[in-house]
Design a protein around this nucleic acid. Structure first.
Lengths: 462, 462
DNA sequence: CGATTTGTGTGTATACATTTG
DNA sequence: TCAAATGTATACACACAAATC
């Protein structure tokens, strides 16, 4: 993080006193916004302390607090008590990851797709579904949270991951991301705080930012988030929720150990946090990893929203995820589902249902696991030292050293023909000591292409 | 609206001084919340003025302002400068309308479905789509805003309503409601204000409430919202956007006249409002109503989000809507789409596309129009006096008199065997002088059932 | 129509918490 | 370990705006 070298020198930003109109705080905020958006104030720049700027402008310092707060709400700046106020690293740009606009020239090791090679099985099943006698029943407004047999199939599917619930406390929604959006809108207010891993799912970061929900990064180790650190933060500030991907963290590939789950659950219970458990990788972990016992939902059923998307495990194009939640959260979540989606396509849900009931879903999962295994083996040919982390993950987390500028690394690699994402993109806070790259293994059309991409990467890093 | 009769008497709410802990404003807010949620303070009750309560508690009155503001943000109370602060009519309950949980004993004249009788045509087309050679292309993460040919078909569809745009400035999303959620999250901040008709789409009211966006009701006449009133409100407070359904307002069935559109556009342009144009009823109006010229998007292409859902016109179960927007809004909207949906099911979009390209969509529309015409004729047999309003609307707006209690009317009618919605449910503000019922004509399985429902209604009202 | 009531917006004073050195 | 630097939270004073009578 670039630190302003004029620390005790003339202030890094001196707004023109003449430009200052009443109300002061609005005027100051918009001057600052212009300055940042135009690039005159670079990311990482330390802004003048509130009292200093106030002295300079000859107003009360809490008026500056207010101006800064406005810019903070827009994500332009961030503040650390004791240290100062800084321009955000991502002030001008956004870090959302989507499959849109990938230059076809590039090998994509950035966006994590889902080994789409198994979609022929899905295509077959689609044909079966449309031959059903009740096809027309799938085309109306009814059953906004899913048809009863679809919900039952979903519960059935999740039972193999250790989930026990009933149709009343679950809903079918349009994908994991959609489920997260629903949960955030339903259960949190602007200004609320949610604890996350230091490195977390980039789209969750963006979603929270859009909804003005603050993320509080909590340090972790190889077994996941540290309960002590979570406890500390909960005591220090008012934290309302926590976001975890216990089966395989994105981007770190960390699986939370069972004993760690227990410890975290204790803290979460004590502070009555709402747990958002994104278990999109359950299919790679439950029944496979020896230490796996159960999802955290089973430890905290009353205060958890369990989200089980089928995009990675079954089919990415059919937008289906299951949400399971405690009775106490039910009303608000259903409300939010009606307000954001009205309903999820019954046709998509029916295809997923048929895949599950016919056993084809397991076939797909097993094929994807094989593909993942092969891809991971290839990866390990190139980067053998990186032994920790999930063995079947669709992506890997590669520590890099010596290269200081994140933007440059990514741009260089794109020039060289591969797309990857730098760890900065996954930072929920502002501290970045180490550097990593997230390497997607599931988006190339063949192992050969993957090999080609990794070759380029290895060459660049050496 | 019930007015507290103790106006100049002991205050309607006297919090216990001993219960007051620091921080005062939080303590006061939570006491008030408990009181309201437990029903001890009834909806409509006037709360003590800020100064009076402050005197009583012996603290500064702006601390009361803050406590009240917190409850206001939660929708528990509302305030009118000069008049006082009141408990919200809907403090405890929500007004979202969905197809969930309709007692099968009841004839549904509440939820507006879409004459689902035409879904056999859709079912046929589904079969055609799955025989396509490129079915597998519909099952992956690609093209999150729609495949190029799907977007082209959408533009083609909207051209008949008068929309001219290009693929870059449009996106396929998961239904109109989803489009509204995306637009609100993308383009507005918590605390922003949006102008709406006095009576407006109930789910939009809820959505705005959930996102802490304030609605400002603007009076209208038979030709739509009054430009002068809009102008007034814009000058008085800081308004950021406006929500309109020009082709056929929900619930009022008002079609905004072309000259009114021009006048409103002038005000909207002057104050740089973002226009959210929900044109779900375009298919009932464009090319049919003699006065119809064009959507408002064409008058204000740079500052409008045009939303064209296919749920009412083509098929309700396939969750597809088109969003068209100005270049300036593009980046933020795409961002929000990725964050809320990732993508919309390409399969659903493909079916809608095929329906449009094959001409079946027009067939469906024409069938739905016939059904709407028949249903409206039946309605007019029962309620002939109600001549104004859209001739083909899927619902009607029935003025009622003499019956004072909204909850009772609705409960009575449910008892009698029909579900309807009272105008209070559609109030964007708090003023309710007249009373209406919205009567859905499109949700019964037959005209006979509709007739049965209207019979019950007429009997009750006479 | 002008005084009064009542809510809103803006700037300020003060106590406090966290980080850094 | 403590003091200085720095941001945060809370309460207050005052000018203003809108509605009411």
């Amino acid at each position: 993080m670039p630190v302003n070298s004029f620390d005790n020198f003339p202030m890094s930003w001196k707004p023109d006193k003449k430009e200052l109109k009443r109300p002061f705080y609005l005027s100051i905020a918009s001057l600052l916004e212009q300055e940042i958006m135009s690039g005159l104030l670079a990311p990482g720049t330390k802004l003048p302390p509130q009292r200093e700027l106030a002295d300079f402008l000859d107003i009360n310092f809490t008026t500056i607090t207010r101006a800064y707060r406005l810019c903070m709400a827009k994500g332009l700046i961030y503040a650390v008590t004791g240290s100062g106020t800084f321009v955000s690293p991502n002030a001008a740009r956004s870090v959302t990851i989507s499959a849109d606009k990938i230059s076809s020239e590039c090998i994509d090791l950035g966006f994590v797709a889902s080994f789409e090679q198994s979609n022929d099985i899905v295509a077959e099943t689609v044909k079966k579904v449309i031959d059903k006698s009740y096809l027309e029943m799938l085309l109306n407004y009814n059953d906004p949270t899913g048809l009863p047999h679809q919900k039952k199939a979903g519960l059935n599917w999740m039972e193999s991951f250790g989930i026990r619930s009933d149709s009343e406390c679950m809903a079918i929604v349009s994908g994991s991301q959609n489920a997260l959006a629903i949960a955030l809108v339903a259960l949190f207010e602007p200004g609320n705080r949610i604890a996350t891993d230091t490195y977390t799912y980039a789209n969750f970061i963006e979603l929270a930012k859009m909804l003005h929900i603050k993320l509080v990064p909590i340090p972790g180790d190889q077994f996941g988030m540290l309960p002590g650190e979570l406890e500390n933060q909960c005591c220090q500030t008012d934290i309302h929720g926590i976001f975890l991907m216990p089966s395989c963290g994105n981007p770190t590939t960390i699986m939370i150990s069972d004993s760690r789950k227990q410890e975290l659950a204790t803290v979460i219970r004590k502070h009555r946090l709402i747990l958002l458990e994104d278990d999109i990788h359950a299919f790679l972990t439950a029944g496979i990893e020896p230490d796996y016992k159960q999802p955290m939902f089973e430890l905290l059923p009353e205060q958890t929203v369990y989200i089980c998307g089928t995009s990675k495990s079954i089919c990415s194009g059919l937008r289906v995820a299951y949400m399971v939640f405690g009775e106490a959260l039910r009303k608000k979540i259903l409300q939010a589902i009606f307000n954001i989606n009205v309903k999820t396509s019954s046709l998509d849900a029916e295809i997923i249902t048929e895949l599950i009931l016919s056993g084809k879903a397991f076939e797909i999962v097993s094929r994807k696991k094989q593909l993942a295994q092969s891809a991971n083996s290839v990866y390990e040919e190139f980067f053998p030292q990186n032994s920790s982390g999930h063995r079947l993950s669709f992506y890997r987390w590669l520590p890099i050293q010596g290269h200081c500028n994140a933007e440059k690394i990514v741009a260089d690699l794109e020039q060289a023909g591969i797309r990857v994402f730098h760890s900065n993109r996954f930072l929920s806070g502002h501290t970045a000591s180490d550097q990593y790259l997230r390497i997607a293994l599931s988006s190339t059309n063949s192992l050969k292409e993957l090999r080609g991409g990794l070759e380029i990467l290895k060459q660049y890093l050496s």
